[in-house]
């Protein structure tokens, strides 16, 4: 229903302009209230609560309980029992050490290869758009598929890699890449680097495209050579994206045991067992969900600590 409102036109002017306006319904009146914003946020908050906070909280809570599917009579609250056991568990410490080696090695390799690929693809030469699409191919492959492809390629008796290396004279005989404890983690890391470097290549390429050309021109005027331009222009401009992508990749690697599960199963002799794999095996081989959840909680805390420390140390937040 249309009504008329009155509004003064200005100081000293006694005329009144009649302004038509819409009478508000219940929803309209509600939208005028301060709580309206919270109402609009409510669906998102419920979703966040349901799919992020609840599972996370439940996992933390489960870590304080005994829950072994094959021993249901022992279920119940056990407080910090699992965490105390973890501190005294040599397999945990071995898995933690392997996780550090696995994550640092993989991220450094992926970042280096991704940066190199991004720099090359940023040249805008003919055919590079197709090359950019091809570089991304490994990233499109699910971990399970990539793991199985490389398991076959690195197979000690039928694998093409051994055959090529022997024909090239690099090896004298076929090598059992995943049967030697000192080699197994490195071989798995090579597979992971192949699989993960497009993630960095894609993000860094996008960031490289966004660097203003003026900066390079100014640096060139100051006599900066290609290396100086890379160190003093490119890298600082990429810093933010490098920090963010490293954090994301570290989280992803710490939480994803698939490649190792397929290639080595954590062996031989636990030489490739990482924390996520240990938690998975505890849950699904021993059906010990309480202990597995406690392991997951420790991983969660370590990742939080890493992310906080890394972002702080990299000074990105000050920019």
């Amino acid at each position: 229903m249309t009504a008329l409102s009155e509004a003064r036109l200005g100081d000293g002017d006694r005329r009144v302009r009649r302004v038509p306006h819409v009478r508000l319904g219940a929803l309209g009146r509600l939208s005028e209230r301060r709580g309206w914003a919270w109402l609009l946020l409510l669906p998102s908050l419920v979703m966040i609560l349901a799919i992020i906070l609840y599972p996370t909280g439940y996992g933390l809570w489960l870590g304080l309980h005994e829950m072994r599917l094959t021993r249901p009579d022992r279920d119940g609250f056990v407080g910090l029992k699992h965490f105390i056991a973890i501190a005294d568990d040599p397999i945990f410490w071995l898995s933690l050490r392997n996780t550090l080696v696995w994550v640092v090695g993989s991220v450094v390799g992926e970042l280096a290869l991704g940066l190199a690929a991004a720099l090359v693809l940023n040249k805008d030469l003919p055919g590079f758009k197709l090359a950019a699409a091809l570089v991304l191919l490994p990233w499109f492959l699910p971990n399970v598929v990539a793991g199985n492809i490389w398991a076959m390629m690195l197979d000690p008796r039928l694998g093409v890699i051994n055959d090529v290396l022997v024909r090239m004279g690099v090896l004298t005989t076929y090598r059992a890449w995943f049967a030697e404890p000192d080699l197994a983690l490195a071989a798995a890391m090579a597979v992971e680097i192949w699989h993960g470097f497009p993630f960095f290549a894609l993000l860094l390429l996008a960031a490289l495209k966004a660097i203003p050309q003026d900066l390079y021109e100014a640096a060139a005027c100051d006599g900066a050579k290609a290396w100086d331009q890379f160190v003093h222009v490119t890298l600082p401009q990429l810093r933010m994206i490098i920090v963010a992508s490293v954090v994301l990749r570290v989280i992803s690697l710490v939480n994803s045991p698939e490649i190792l599960l397929i290639l080595t199963g954590g062996g031989p002799g636990r030489s490739t067992q990482v924390l996520s794999l240990y938690a998975f095996l505890k849950a699904y081989k021993e059906f010990n969900f309480g202990y597995a959840s406690a392991l997951a909680t420790v991983m969660f805390l370590l990742l939080m600590l890493f992310s906080w420390a890394y972002v702080r140390l990299s000074n990105v937040m000050r920019d």
Binding site: E180, G266, P268, G269, S271
Partner: peptide
């Protein structure tokens, strides 16, 4: 099942390597 896969096998592998 858990003992066989999570203890026996990795411990035997350790001997092998």
């Amino acid at each position: 099942a858990g003992w066989s896969e999570q203890v026996v096998l990795p411990e035997f592998q350790k001997v092998l390597v």
